[in-house]
Design a protein around this nucleic acid. Sequence first.
DNA 1: GGTGGGATGTGGTCTGACCACATGCTAGCG
DNA 2: CGCTAGCATGTGGTCAGACCACATCCCACC
Lengths: 262, 262
Amino acid sequence: MSAPPRAWETVLQSIELDLLSGRLRPGDRLPPERALAVELGVGRSSVREAIRVLEVLGLLRTSAGSGPGAGAIIVALPGGGMSALMRLQVAARGFPVADVVKTRLVLEASVVTELAEASARADSTMVASASLRPNLRAPVQLLGAMDSPALTEAEFLALDAEFHLALAEASGNQVVTATMAGLRSAIEGYARAGATSLASWADTSTRLRAEHRAIVAAIEAGDAPAARSLVHDHIAGYYAETHQAHHRPARTADASGYPVAR
Amino acid sequence: MSAPPRAWETVLQSIELDLLSGRLRPGDRLPPERALAVELGVGRSSVREAIRVLEVLGLLRTSAGSGPGAGAIIVALPGGGMSALMRLQVAARGFPVADVVKTRLVLEASVVTELAEASARADSTMVASASLRPNLRAPVQLLGAMDSPALTEAEFLALDAEFHLALAEASGNQVVTATMAGLRSAIEGYARAGATSLASWADTSTRLRAEHRAIVAAIEAGDAPAARSLVHDHIAGYYAETHQAHHRPARTADASGYPVAR
DNA sequence: GGTGGGATGTGGTCTGACCACATGCTAGCG
DNA sequence: CGCTAGCATGTGGTCAGACCACATCCCACC
């Protein structure tokens, strides 16, 4: 009837079931490839293909050698896998840059809203306000790093992307954090490509620095609407500035721009 | 210095570069595995591992046989890959269900806002309003399918998840659509798990049907704030109803429910 | 008791072989 | 001359076996 499952899919499914049932948990080690192969009745190469997939997806980490710490270990770090997926999809024209930017706007607006609201809650609480207050140490530190005048454009933009990712991390939502991590390389890509069309990089980077500080200030003040609008303008502003007219036609050989005869 | 790249990583990188440079585009066929292997100076199994990864990520589709249509073909369909990633991460406890729900709230609120605004724009435009108006045929059709009284809970919830995904598709944002597609199986999972704790499935499903219709109506009326709040209440309401008290302890052996002595 | 080197177990890779399947060509038949 | 059955070919899917590099562990030797 339906397509017979390929051998590596059997392996993948078996591991997934073990995860769902709790037989495998983060920190556990997978059985050796050779053992899995005989246990599931498949060849070792099929086991390896499944493990490779899980590794790229961020589910596990492999290392050679012997003893504890070696072998395939469940880690469940979604960032890497999401990042690879987004990067490759953008490379294969699966994800238009405009959609990446729109998604950024939505996610980051939500992130700063949550952070600002958490700050406000912490302010209105007497006790333990330090523990309720979101931890902005990482983003603030990146703010400082971005002040260095010796930075190249690429270095600055890398720190910029990291700053936005650090905000997402601070919000504590792991799905959003992983998605932002995935978007990150795509973001860096379009930011760098667009930077060449700027009138003055010095002016723009100064503006970006100020906008970052304003966003953090709004979060710490617990002003969610302000944080939301600041982050929206920050992202949309840069994108509009760098990608206004040139939508890169680059379709096929027939990119002459002339109307087709027919 | 840094770790030497593993053979399959070289293959992956080579294909990624071909995608970025435009040497490979959607619809193209990859060279045969054996040819790639000799070209890159690696074994065929390493090529296969890289191809497997790309396949799971939704970058390409493989099929045996000969002639056009066979082989590995670039497709760039992000849904499948995202779905596998999210499903496995949830299975491995990488993504808490609460974060999945929060992310749903953010993304779906944005989706219906955009749809409603597009509707409003279409209303205020004289010409070609039909083409500007978002295409809600697919979600509306699912609404009809969900009316069937013969549906089991699982079937209803599957249609429900599909309805929400169809809304995302209608919004046209491919990144959001792919993310929702990824969230979909996780959503179905928690929805089904929670359904067992409902007082009356008949009542709840009737309410869900009505809420769906109200959301579509608000979109078609171009009322973005209403659509936003309706979809928020719809999702948050069901989640609260089904996951209020029991955070599924199921941690380890000590799931007795008794307070620990200490 | 300390230490160095081999034994062991693991992933990483390659080679070669065979199978299943889809296509395309060709020889043979009507 | 045209059609069709069946073989040739090219592709992915899988397996088995071998070897390497590496990390650890253990034991004999000093």
